[in-house]
Design a protein around this nucleic acid. Sequence first.
DNA 1: ATAATATGCAACCAACGCATTGCACATTGC
DNA 2: GCAATGTGCAATGCGTTGGTTGCATATTAT
Lengths: 103, 103
Amino acid sequence: MKATALRRSAPVFAALGDPTRLRLVGVLCASGAMSIAQLTAGTAITRQAVTRHLDVLAGAGLVRDVKQGRERLWQFEPSRLDEARRSLEAIARQWDHALQRLR
Amino acid sequence: MKATALRRSAPVFAALGDPTRLRLVGVLCASGAMSIAQLTAGTAITRQAVTRHLDVLAGAGLVRDVKQGRERLWQFEPSRLDEARRSLEAIARQWDHALQRLR
DNA sequence: ATAATATGCAACCAACGCATTGCACATTGC
DNA sequence: GCAATGTGCAATGCGTTGGTTGCATATTAT
């Protein structure tokens, strides 16, 4: 794989590198669209902290928000995650090729 | 997928979230085993910084070191990365199922 | 033995990340 | 209108991260 494509996935991995954010992604994946208040309920952190995490995820292109009345609904956005997944697959493939070469 | 399995991948993603470390993983994947000095050559940062990054990667289980004389060779360790890759696949699958359900 | 190479360890520093609190603003329900 | 709900914005605290420099130690080469 090209090194540039790999480098482009770094921000996505960084965004997924936090347990709280990883959980948010999982919840949004399973439940469609949720408000900040809904996403905060059941966690030990404040609403503002959740908002910041969502902003980080949005910065990496993993989620996007839709304003609806006084609420702000967040939903999962799969394209970047797919890209990151392909990056990991490419690395694994490259490793397999390297192993074959070393024999 | 189980939430616990997802949570277990957070440290791996965090380790991959730095461009320097992502590059190190790529290089080690392609080249087999390399010393710290070799991995430092061609970068703008110091050998000590590279050592720190390698320690972080080792902490996430992505690489391991083998001492050989005065050198310390580092090599890629695929198991954790495979696990993380499967986590991303599970998320993508879950999203597809959610989409189907919403129709 | 001596010089060169490869690394380890520790102190230090600037910047960033994660979470908080406090207050203001907008929207909805009664 | 008024209260409740949902959110935004700003300042702050504090631990972590990513990088450095300086010096010590271990191994290899001549």
